[in-house]
Design a protein around this nucleic acid. Sequence first.
DNA 1: CCGAAACGACCGAACGTTCGGTAGGAACCA
DNA 2: TGGTTCCTACCGAACGTTCGGTCGTTTCGG
Lengths: 232, 232
Amino acid sequence: MITDLTDPGTDAHERIRTAAVLLFARQGYAATSIRDLGRAVNMTNAGIYHHVGSKEALLADLMRVAQQGLNSATERMLATAGGPSDRLALLIGSLTAVHACAPLTTSVMDGELRSLTPGSAARDEIIVLRDAYEAHWKRTLADGVAEGTFRVADQKLTRLALMSMCTGTSEWYRPDGDSTLEQVCAEFVTIGLAAVRAPVQVTTSPDFSLLPDLPWEPPDVQHDPRPDEARR
Amino acid sequence: MITDLTDPGTDAHERIRTAAVLLFARQGYAATSIRDLGRAVNMTNAGIYHHVGSKEALLADLMRVAQQGLNSATERMLATAGGPSDRLALLIGSLTAVHACAPLTTSVMDGELRSLTPGSAARDEIIVLRDAYEAHWKRTLADGVAEGTFRVADQKLTRLALMSMCTGTSEWYRPDGDSTLEQVCAEFVTIGLAAVRAPVQVTTSPDFSLLPDLPWEPPDVQHDPRPDEARR
DNA sequence: CCGAAACGACCGAACGTTCGGTAGGAACCA
DNA sequence: TGGTTCCTACCGAACGTTCGGTCGTTTCGG
């Protein structure tokens, strides 16, 4: 993980991406200039363009790698899972954990799709990846309902509610807060299984070693207070 | 409600605010120019400034009115409510309903706080309003835990999870979708009460006539597909 | 004939991006 | 060993465009 964005010793390509994740997450893509990025890595705006094709290509790159990481980690985890309840618990736990561990990367991933030019190949590729990820949720819910394990009024509604709960984690979770990551995941899994009326069962935390490696998540420089009590 | 943003017959002040909600929600505040706004209401950028002090003041205005509407509607509803379970059901149902009925206004309200200059009076005022709103959730949860109705591992965690679920509604709910607004609210209330281990009870929809009037929510011009299946 | 509403023209600043140039080091040949 | 040739990494300066915002003027209903 990059720890000093201005240190010319570490690979500039990586430092730029790390700074981009930080600034895009904090201020938004549109409000971040190439010159902001340059300042963060101690370079001129022209220097940035030696490492990056364009501002939009940089964003697309971050988003694609992050989404690919989530997809492959999810597939890796689901490979060992059993029935729909197990699989749903895994989906909830891992999505929550990723958003807690990489809040900046995930908030760019979740929130900046609209900044990619409609119809561009880069954007379409990311949408395909995202749809592939969501397909795991759809199939899991459908399987659970089909075999009678789950009882839900509307599968889409349930899925979107649970995913919102998980992705919202990036907006408030703090490693030094009142709950540990394991507690949050366990609590969310419990809520999720209750939402689909699955029979109560012992739930296990996701295997954190299987979580995606999101390579450009900045270190926790981000200690501005957040929503709760927050003068954000 | 404004239906034709370009019709000079209706009040220009209202048309500008309606267009601003639409564009800020779709593209984000930073990516929306005053000229974009002018184009939407058939005016030049200079014309906009006859009705608006500055771009940032316009955003602050939208956010303040929206948050005030939510606060006063919530207080109106809570005035008639009974115990913590009733109150929590009301909070969940009304927050969900507002995000479903006014997705554009609420997504600006929820997502553009970072676009207001840190330390500005306008921003501070909105933060105070938001904190006042969240206090209703905090008090309700604390009351329920204190009197033994609720059992939660961590009140903050529970509150933020439930609020994320409710606010996420603005990203996917479609009035012509598979679920009615009443179904969504009922489902979310059920999930929420399960999350705090409250004894099961018959839940009623919030009284929709008591919901806030968010005056600049654009009509459903916004029929671009959304997250699910979505090439957003 | 007055005030509100909107216009065209414009400002300085900042934007994304490009370009020519250069410092420094590796690679190669003599 | 010295000289030539590259290449990577970056800089300073500038490009055309767009930004938020201002100005003086015009239009026009009451």
